[in-house]
């Protein structure tokens, strides 16, 4: 792992317009991602966690420009992806790949596995035609699928195997960064463990960088170096794995961690149960977005939006919470 930044996301906003009224004007926006910034270094795994509607998947899609962001910059190796033309971006996708949650929906059912992989190589013209068959065999072996299965169709594989095919497709163009959007969420635990191990293995082997999007904190703890916690379109905490799990600072991170049912039945801990639902991202709360559900909220939280600030002693930890200020006083 180096400290060379591979991906820098700066002030990224993703607003989706809501049409309404008699003439279908844009009456408001869904503020799915609202001004977030972070950096992913070469060779590391950064995870984005949060509950549905927090903007984690939207962030992943915006980085890859699967949906063009509303504003902000996405620097990849120092180059702004947002300013690229469509054709340039298509070329760039060789370096940035994505693996989705539902492997079945993202594989063309009418193509065999080898056709799927070949198409990816063809588009990016990374492998000369004559070597492709061999490369496909290698790829499939790498992800743990027998090369003899290369002429089968996606429906002939199990969920775990399909996800392996999705991984093979992402790998086929030798990417630098892979966005894993809930990549193991749909899998059974025993299969999930296999795929997680595979992802770790591939990272070592191919020096990959992962942006790992997940709602499962167990998975995130296992795979990440650094973790971003999002709530309602904002980053509430970014920290090294150890700091985040050992000493979560933001009340939301604390609640999130304590809400997960633990298999450790020897030590039953008191859990923090948040009241109510996540507010609508159309008109998010003023001030701190979490203040409506926060057990520690005070006047300032409803008025002023907290900024991310360093709190880590030694390690890396940034938190957006007014409590940090109060404690410092």
């Amino acid at each position: 792992m180096s400290n060379q930044a591979l991906l820098e996301v700066k002030e990224l906003k993703q607003y989706f317009p809501i049409k309404g009224g008699v003439f279908g004007r844009t009456v408001n926006h869904v503020k799915a991602v609202d001004d977030i910034s972070f950096t992913v270094n070469e060779g590391e795994t950064v995870s984005i966690v949060g509950e549905s509607g927090c903007g984690k998947s939207t962030t992943g899609r915006a980085i890859l420009r699967l949906d063009n962001p509303y504003s902000g910059n996405v620097l990849f190796e120092g180059e702004d992806l947002i300013s690229l033309s469509k054709a340039q971006m298509r070329k760039k996708r060789k370096d940035l790949q994505i693996i989705f949650q539902d492997p079945y929906a993202s594989l063309n059912p009418r193509q065999t596995v080898s056709q799927i992989l070949e198409e990816a190589m063809e588009i990016q013209s990374v492998v000369p035609r004559k070597d492709r068959r061999k490369k496909i065999q290698e790829l499939l072996e790498t992800v743990g699928i027998g090369a003899h299965q290369m002429d089968r169709y996606p429906h002939e594989f199990s969920g775990g195997q399909r996800q392996r095919i999705g991984i093979a497709r992402a790998l086929s163009v030798n990417p630098k960064l892979i966005v894993c959007d809930e990549a193991v969420s749909a899998l059974d635990v025993s299969i999930q463990a296999q795929v997680l191990n595979l992802l770790k293995d591939l990272q070592r082997q191919f020096k990959l960088t992962y942006l790992f999007i997940s709602h499962d904190l167990g998975v995130v703890r296992h795979i990440s170096d650094r973790i971003i916690v999002m709530y309602l379109g904002k980053i509430v905490e970014i920290a090294d794995k150890k700091a985040l799990f050992d000493d979560p600072k933001h009340p939301y991170t604390q609640a999130l961690l304590s809400a997960i049912p633990s298999t450790n039945i020897a030590e039953k801990k008191e859990r923090i149960i948040l009241k109510g639902d996540v507010p609508s991202p159309i008109d998010p709360p003023v001030g701190c977005r979490f203040h409506t559900r926060c057990p520690y909220a005070f006047e300032r939280c409803a008025v002023e939006e907290p900024k991310l600030m360093n709190v880590g002693n030694g390690g890396f930890q940034q938190v957006a919470c007014h409590l940090m200020d109060e404690q410092a006083k």
């Binding site: 635990v189 463990a193 191990n197 296992h222 799990f245 961690l257 997960i260 633990s262 298999t263 450790n264």
Partner: peptide, 15 residues
């Protein structure tokens, strides 16, 4: 094989 959120696992998960 369950990755645990309240426990560190060194290296690979057992599968």
């Amino acid at each position: 094989s369950v990755p645990k959120h309240d426990e560190d696992v060194e290296g690979d998960l057992s599968i």
